[in-house]
């Protein structure tokens, strides 16, 4: 699904990622954890194509194609989905409009015709119910005036409708209370499938109580300093990040 090899990324002259290696197979959930400033967000941004970063070395291939060479919208149409840490408010564009634009872009990309208006509504309303959202939500402007929880739920709704292959969740738990966290996690869990992979970038372990990862990687100073199973997250919760950073510094 995704193969990252020796990836080096800088912002301006400043190296942020210093040789990331990561293999993600279909159906796997990988959690990327790490302290602030470790490069977690940079990793999710570079995978989704945000500008402002320079790849100085290494590669990332997605389904055998050079991911870093694709425009952000091509990545999205190919099935890469970034759930934003801070979803952007877009007054004047309704949720339903954006969903239709996005879905039809994907269909066009794959040589399919525009989705039928009725089928579309049936699809969207079904997903809205699944996420325990109000239908009125669809006709509101994208994220405008939404609470933190609503914004994150909206990201999951988009994900549910666009059916991506690789989902990158950037700090999805930040700003969520426990109820919202449950709903969002249930949404993500319902999307788990043998051919869909997830990369969850998170600072805290608590999201992993709800979404069980197959692998946990710890990012520090732009490198993966430790990888393991779900138990690694618990260890981090207990000890914090400093022991790993110290270990890396003394290595």
């Amino acid at each position: 699904m995704l193969s990252i090899k020796n990836l080096h990324v800088s912002v301006g002259d400043k190296p942020i990622l210093k040789g990331i290696n990561l293999e993600i197979k279909p159906g796997e959930i990988h959690a990327i954890m790490g302290p602030n400033g470790s490069g977690k967000s940079t990793l999710s941004h570079i995978l989704s194509g945000k500008s402002g970063y320079t790849v100085t070395d290494g590669s990332a291939s997605y389904q055998g194609k050079d991911l870093l060479d694709m425009a952000p919208e091509i990545r999205a149409r190919e099935g890469v989905f970034l759930a934003f840490q801070y979803p952007v408010e877009i007054p004047g564009v309704s949720n339903v409009y954006l969903l239709k634009a996005a879905l039809n872009s994907i269909r066009k990309h794959h040589g399919q015709s525009e989705v039928d208006a009725m089928d579309f509504l049936t699809l969207v309303k079904g997903k809205v119910r699944l996420l325990d959202m109000d239908e009125k939500f669809l006709y509101r402007a994208v994220n405008e005036g939404f609470s933190g929880g609503e914004k994150k739920r909206n990201e999951i709704l988009q994900m549910a409708i666009l059916e991506p292959k690789l989902c990158i969740l950037d700090e999805t738990d930040s700003g969520l209370d426990i109820d919202a966290l449950k709903i969002v996690s249930e949404g993500v869990n319902s999307l788990r499938s043998p051919d869909r992979s997830f990369v969850m970038v998170t600072h805290y372990q608590r999201l992993l109580d709800y979404i069980k990862p197959d692998f946990v990687h710890v990012l520090a100073h732009g490198q993966i300093v430790k990888s393991g199973g779900p138990e690694l997250a618990l260890e981090l919760e207990e000890k914090g990040y400093s022991w790993l950073e110290d270990a890396e510094a003394s290595a």
Partner: peptide, 17 residues
């Protein structure tokens, strides 16, 4: 706003659109 443009791009919409 460049952030909004990127948000839409990440939702499959090309830059000009």
């Amino acid at each position: 706003d460049e952030k909004s443009i990127f948000y839409l791009q990440s939702r499959c919409v090309d830059e000009e659109t």
